[in-house]
């Protein structure tokens, strides 16, 4: 966070204005697929910024790769964001690769793809995550401010997920208990059986 990057608003606006080419619909292969060669896009992005990354690096995101559709979508969205000219890349590409691969995979399992665009707070989280990965902070913010805001925004999401997960677990337990308690035959009449 030592380096001051572009203004946060510039990045969140870029996310909001993501072209449709970077928001793929389902692919011809059916539900849940992505009809864009995400691996090629990422490869080209790195090349554009002067990094020659072996093609195999993004193999998981290729058409035959193991990446889930949500991961592909988030990596594609991050590619658009990282192509922002005002965003300086570091000397080494490792941090970018980590963002596009492991962080994107992890986050895509927690947040639905559509929310990255639709939800203002998620746009901010994504913009801050990109800056953080590149060792930068938003223009006009001190290191402390940037760190606090990042913790607030990511911990909010985490807290929400934890609470939702606790509540869902409790509900599922109650349903399983209720199901085990009452057999229909003992507590309702049907005029037929299956």
């Amino acid at each position: 966070m030592d380096i001051e990057g572009p203004p946060l608003a510039l990045l969140t606006a870029r996310i909001a204005d993501t072209p449709v080419d970077f928001l793929p619909a389902s692919g011809a292969a059916g539900e849940g697929t992505v009809a864009v060669a995400v691996d090629a896009v990422l490869h080209d992005l790195c090349a554009m910024r002067g990094f020659e990354v072996p093609a195999a690096t993004f193999a998981a995101l290729s058409a035959q790769g193991k990446a889930a559709p949500a991961w592909r979508r988030l990596s594609l969205l991050l590619a658009w964001l990282l192509a922002e000219p005002a965003l300086r890349w570091p000397q080494r590409v490792d941090a970018v690769l980590e963002l596009l691969l492991s962080r994107a995979e992890e986050l895509s399992a927690q947040v639905k793809s559509a929310q990255w665009l639709a939800d203002e707070e998620r746009r901010e989280e994504l913009a801050r995550l990109a800056l953080l990965s590149l060792g930068q902070r938003p223009a006009g913010e001190s290191v402390v401010q940037a760190r606090d805001r990042w913790q607030a925004i990511s911990s909010t999401e985490r807290a929400r997920l934890v609470a939702a997960s606790r509540s869902a677990e409790q509900r599922a337990r109650e349903i399983r208990e209720a199901l085990a308690r009452k057999a229909a035959e003992e507590s309702a009449d049907k005029w037929s059986r299956e």
């Binding site: 599922a172 199901l179 085990a180 009452k182 057999a183 229909a184 507590s187």
Partner: peptide
């Protein structure tokens, strides 16, 4: 996981089961 297929806004006090 049958519990995940029950809408989360329905009361459970009179839930019954059909065994199949």
């Amino acid at each position: 996981d049958i519990a995940a297929h029950v809408p989360d806004d329905l009361p459970l006090d009179r839930l019954i089961n059909f065994r199949t």
